[in-house]
């Protein structure tokens, strides 16, 4: 037992240094006023930051928008990623080449591709607007309309990260032994039954993994939105990461920025816990239901 702990110690120390320590520092900072107005000196302020946080309508609006973005983009990515993974898992000619090239969007730096999308969705010069005009006869103000702008960010995110989801799911598909399908086919099961009874239940851990990774990333979305819309129009695409960043680096209000981070950390942790319970329950049910 002691040896075990001793062996774990270096990595524990490392984790503490890069994870626990900054978190503790931020927690401490969230109970202090530390901004340009205090001369960047931390002064205890009796939870005023937290009071402000709870009453900050802008934060809660941003949280709602971030969740909307995360749920919409991750759902689409999982669906599309699954479809692409199933396709890529089929034996076909040049499979390696197709698999590699399908990763290109994911390999591009986010800011570069976000700048690209900003021009693609540009009105009136972007191709999307041109296409829309030629079909519907009037222009599409995709980035300037609050009801549409967030959809363009979802679209860009789906384009970029679906390959990542597909890659994880493809790895999952390859762990499923092919004799399961052969046996099922012998029993007369169709493709849809195979998908429902074999592929999806066995892929569930990988779906959970992709979901967890993507949710955490989408929740902290920053660069994509910063470049594409800057949070606008009318702050309709602002995410909590963007808000925290502005408070820290633009407003030099480190106390409140820390409060936003810690608050979001708590909310995200709770969400992951709920997701974990849901997935665990689903898995148990699918294992129980498998023999039938």
């Amino acid at each position: 037992m002691t040896t075990l702990l001793l062996l774990l110690l270096p990595s524990m120390l490392f984790m503490a240094g890069v994870f626990a320590l900054p978190l503790a520092r931020y927690l401490w900072l969230s109970f202090h006023a530390d901004s340009v107005m205090t001369g960047l000196v931390a002064i205890p302020n009796d939870g005023a930051n937290w009071n402000r946080f709870l009453n900050d309508l802008r934060y809660w609006q941003d949280l709602g928008q971030t969740l909307r973005f995360a749920v919409a983009s991750v759902t689409l990515e999982l669906l599309l990623g699954l479809a692409i993974a199933l396709l890529l898992n089929q034996p076909q000619r040049g499979r390696a080449l197709i698999r590699t090239t399908s990763l290109i969007p994911w390999a591009l730096p986010t800011t570069v591709m976000a700048l690209g999308w900003r021009w693609i969705f540009n009105t009136p010069y972007g191709p999307v607007n041109r296409l829309f005009e030629s079909v519907f006869g009037h222009s599409l103000n995709a980035l300037g309309e609050p009801s549409l702008a967030w959809l363009t960010t979802v679209y860009a995110d789906v384009w970029k990260t679906t390959p990542f989801v597909a890659l994880i799911l493809l790895a999952g598909l390859q762990t499923i032994p092919s004799d399961l399908y052969e046996a099922a086919r012998l029993e007369g099961a169709g493709a849809l039954t195979c998908l429902k009874k074999i592929t999806l239940p066995l892929l569930l851990p990988y779906l959970g993994l992709a979901l967890m990774f993507r949710m955490a990333q989408a929740f902290g979305v920053f660069d994509l939105i910063q470049v594409m819309t800057g949070g606008g129009p009318a702050s309709s695409t602002e995410s909590i990461a963007l808000y925290a960043y502005w408070n820290a680096l633009r407003f030099l209000d480190f106390g409140y920025s820390a409060t936003i981070m810690i608050g979001s950390f708590i909310i995200l942790t709770m969400m992951v816990a709920i997701a974990w319970v849901v997935i665990a329950t689903a898995r148990r049910r699918s294992v129980v239901g498998a023999p039938s």
Partner: peptide
């Protein structure tokens, strides 16, 4: 001004 000026 064009509607799109809101993202100009």
């Amino acid at each position: 001004s064009p509607r799109a000026v809101t993202n100009y």
